[in-house]
Each structure stands twice: as structure tokens, then as C-alpha cells.
Amino acid sequence: MQKLVNRDVIGAGVLVLFSIAAWRQAAALPSQAGMFPRLIIALLLGFSLIYLLRSLWQARSVAQDTPFFSNLLRFSLALMLTVIYVLIFPRIGFFTTTFIFIPVFAFTIGARRMKSAFLASAVFTLGAWFIFVVLLDRRLPPEWIVTALTGGAN
């Protein structure tokens, strides 16, 4: 059986649905504030439909898609670690979190030379601290470990 659904058909379908949902949101806006968004959404819907029709038309002749993810597990792990990093660094401090994050990320996606990973992480973290704190005087979240050790004198 010939394949009628490929990633273009799915992408176009999502865009059509998104355009309809966005139109419903924009319809509630007053005429002046909503004029430009409605114009854009109407064009978006029109071109999404063209894209959908074209994708359906070409679906029979297009060669089999290459896999969407070249490695779904590593993709998911990398994304999950990035989310965790973003969640915790404003609480624990940028430098502490980063020092741990770099080797953990590298190990998770396959690196095994942990000694050099921690060394590279230390050099990177120290460099970032020197440039952004010492030279540029950037305001970053307080380091939890420093606060705990100094009793809040960070």
C-alpha cells in the first residue's frame, strides 16, 4: 500500500489546525488590535491549506522519509537534562549547576572519559565566572553552596 501520510502531511495538518485555533483567538480581539493578526492568520491558513494539498498530492511519489530522530533516546535525554538545568540553576546557582551539568550531560550522551569531562567543566566554569562576574559584573543567582558555607554572606 502506498504511503499517504508523511511528515509534510502531518506538519501541514498541524499548521491548518493551529491557524484555525489562532483565528478563534484573534476573532475575539477588537477590530484595530486584531486587524494585523487576522490578516496574518488568514494568509497562514491559506498557505497551510496549499501546503497540505501539495503534500497529499506528492505523498505517493515522495520517497520514504528518513527517520525523524536519528537517536530518540539521546534527543530526549539531552532535552530533559536541559529542562532540569534551567529548573535548578536559578535556585542552586549558575556555577555549581554548570560544573555538574557539563560532565553529566556528556556522560549521558556517551562520553566516558569523566576525568577530562570534569576538568573541561572546571576550566569552562572558572572562565565563565571570571568573564561574567569579575570582568562584566553580571548579576547571577547566589551560589547555594557558598551561601551555606558562609552562612549567607555570599
Binding site: Y85, V86, F89, F101, I102, A106, G110, A120, F124, A128
Partner: peptide
């Protein structure tokens, strides 16, 4: 190696963006 470069880029992206508005 790119396995080391990737987390460093993430750290730089987050550092740069966070210092603009301190917004998680």
C-alpha cells in the same frame, strides 16, 4: 569532541539569556 561542546553551548545560552531579564 562535540559531546563536550553541546553542554557548554547550553550553559552559555542560558547564562546569556538569564542575565538579560533574570527570567526563568
Amino acid at each position: 569532541p562535540q559531546v563536550m561542546l553541546a553542554p557548554m553551548i547550553v550553559a552559555l545560552m542560558c547564562l546569556g539569556l538569564y542575565t538579560v531579564n533574570n527570567s526563568q
